[in-house]
Amino acid sequence: MSYSSIVVAISDAFECEHLQDAGIETPDNDVIAAEIIGAQHRMPDYLRAPMFILTWLFDISGIALTGRRFQYLDQVQKIRCINAWRDSRISACRNLVRFYESLFLLIALQEDIH
């Protein structure tokens, strides 16, 4: 029920959607989620609070779509929820998915570029 379990669940879904067949090693999703939450704490204060609230709303929105909160869904249903927000007419919903997806990929796919 904690905030971090929502972020871990989001990371699990992105891993399943994007990296399952990629055949690469990435950090644990717990580690990635901790980094994402750290990044949220560093955000400007006028964006931070809306981000936390939207994340909770996202978790709860799973109930409307599937009958259960996002963090308790299986991966297929999680991706369904993410797609609903990704395609939403409300830009804040699209931006939330974009935020998590970009940070997840940035952290999961870090490499030595030199």
């Binding site: 994007h18 997806e101 970009s102 796919l109």
Partner: peptide, 20 residues
């Protein structure tokens, strides 16, 4: 970089896995 390309390809059919 791999991460930046993967982010750019979000929303494209094959997506980040293709970028990798």
């Amino acid at each position: 970089s791999r991460a930046h390309l993967a982010i750019n390809l979000v929303g494209v059919d094959a997506g980040p896995a293709y970028a990798i």
